[in-house]
Design a protein around this nucleic acid. Structure first.
Lengths: 333, 333
DNA sequence: CCTGTTCTTGGAACGGGTTCCACGCGCGGG
DNA sequence: CCCGCGCGTGGAACCCGTTCCAAGAACAGG
């Protein structure tokens, strides 16, 4: 029982192989009735096209490279969900390269021996380096940025200024001193980019125009020990200055550490300490954390479509797709 | 500047395409001189064969699925090294599936829609389930077990009984009370198999025939907090009973936690407490840990060759390849 | 009802390998 | 010196899709 081929499908449906191929690839010019017949034949035979034959016949790799910093965080997992669902619909494979640090990224970009080059490139979060531009000129590879912005290529990104602003507008209505915690930009990692600066500028802008000052700002690296230390220092200060207080923690991870410490001190979040996070991690709902939800999947999905349109010939100027976070109010405020 | 094809190479070398293909695939029947000419042409043109064309022409996927529990541990990284180096030599790709728990494994094995089936299957550490046997019958897919044993399929594995015995033989010559620490077999994870039971039976067998008893045995789960707790309890008991003592920690991770605690108490490993580990992790040399080194890469390499021989037609009865750990004595004893 | 477009559609050519068959050449034996 | 065998080699056929061209079908306008 050999695997059925496109020939078998064509015979079964009483049409030519060209027609079957057109149905498979959604090339519009197929009449409704014919399309149905072909789809039925495909279903009956349990036909699945051979991707390798497709690649050699089409002269393309039908593969997209996705460059991202790491894939162990919620954010990138969701981002990949969005990217992969869009690429799957268009029958493209995705090759994931978690590059971790600048040297690996540059090694990847500089590599001359990209034997079977991907048809397109998705870069997540990375800032654009000089090497990137050189490589792009050399390879002509269609590229899209996601979670990052540049005016020279298509991009799909979150509006972090707006996210900071939303947090700010809500925070100024809450009682007590105002605090803010940011995430440190590690210089040898490219993936921090301007995300936290943007959140900060949005937040501070609103606070200022509301005539409020932030009592203290903190910067923590993105690990749980540092987050806990920051929480301790912050609460010491807040208790000394008098509760209640309101804290904008620009990443849920930081907010989580703060909630831990609040509980440990017998205080109550949403009464003594108001906490606003950012990310809407899966646990945020359970723990009742007020936070900003980001439509990360949509951002990925849209990025994929920007790239796909380039792949099918679109050649206009760079486009930018901006996504807005949404404030979700829960018990922590 | 198109990518060169096998046609270009044939022309350049003044031979037929068949000959070039034969050289590429090491089909013996090519005369030395001709082979040289072809190899030179390949080098001159910087020719790399198109894997997709190969797959469609050959009617095979030239891909091997490797099923393993996780790939974040030293052991599996080394195992993959061994597997991949062998498969690369034979121009096979490797697709890695870290399946983590029983349900994912069964979902993988039960799947009917393994569209472009791999030519062969490597299963690491997993015990064989009923589903596995059913699937094997259905798909006829050549299979090899690595780090596990069954008498129905080829296998390549470490002799953990022998490892335990080596540890035992050495331990009974060391002074003081005897302790042993094992790793807990989590029941919903398949990947613990009989490894630790085997080490235990080897170790206890030797101790018994030497007329020695083990003062206390501990079981710890494989995480650092549990390991540390176990170390504390063990050392409390040992100090109460009088030092020196000798401990066989059946995984370096456990041994490491023990060394930490030994240092913390101002004791000296190799004098007050003798520690024997198992694995020879990269840090074992630096920290002077006496341990059992496992030829994991060789085990993987051999597993790959067992599978490759099946793929090229070998059809004899199941074969088993057994590998022996080697005791490495360092300062901790 | 006829002619000229515009849609659809069939199928050959093609892409880059592998495999198999047939042929040529070299060598040993008679 | 001739014949036969086998090794080494060339190249056609094939694998399975995509694409493109030409031809048939359908439809609108006169």
């Amino acid at each position: 029982m050999r695997k059925p081929t496109i020939q078998d499908v064509a015979r079964q449906a009483g049409v030519g192989v060209g027609t079957v191929s057109r149905v498979l690839n959604n090339h519009v010019a197929v009449k409704g009735a014919t399309r149905e017949t072909v789809l039925k034949a495909i279903a009956d035979l349990e036909y699945t096209p051979n991707p390798h034959a497709r690649r050699i016949a089409g002269g393309k790799s039908y593969t997209i490279s996705v460059l991202l910093p790491v894939l162990t965080t919620e954010f990138y997992v969701r981002l990949l969900d969005g990217l992969e669902s869009a690429f799957q619909e268009a029958r493209y494979d995705v090759a994931i390269f978690p590059l971790l640090d600048r040297s690996r990224l540059e090694r990847y970009l500089g590599s001359h021996t990209l034997a079977y080059q991907a048809d397109g490139l998705v870069m997540a979060t990375y800032n654009l380096t000089q090497m990137f531009h050189e490589r792009r000129l050399r390879t002509q590879q269609p590229t899209v940025l996601v979670d990052a912005y540049s005016d020279t290529v298509d991009s799909s990104f979150m509006d972090n200024v707006s996210g900071g602003r939303l947090a700010g507008e809500y925070a100024v209505g809450l009682p007590g001193h105002l605090y803010a915690v940011w995430v440190e930009t590690e210089l040898d990692h490219l993936f921090t980019t301007r995300v936290f600066e943007d959140r900060r500028s949005g937040f501070l802008g609103v606070a200022q125009s509301a005539g409020r000052t932030v009592r203290r700002e903190f910067t923590s690296s993105f690990d749980s020990l540092a987050a806990r230390n920051t929480a301790v220092t912050l609460l010491d200060d807040a208790q000394a200055a008098g509760l209640p207080c309101t804290v904008f923690a620009s990443a849920d991870m930081l907010a989580g550490a703060l909630l831990d410490e609040v509980n440990l001190r017998g205080l109550t979040a949403g009464r003594d300490v108001h906490v606003i996070g950012f990310d809407d991690q899966p646990w945020a709902a359970e723990r009742g954390l007020t936070t900003l939800h980001q439509p990360v999947e949509s951002m990925g999905y849209e990025a994929a479509h920007l790239l796909l349109s380039r792949l099918s010939g679109f050649n206009g100027p760079p486009r930018a797709r901006r996504f807005e976070p949404r404030l979700i109010v829960r018990a922590s405020t």
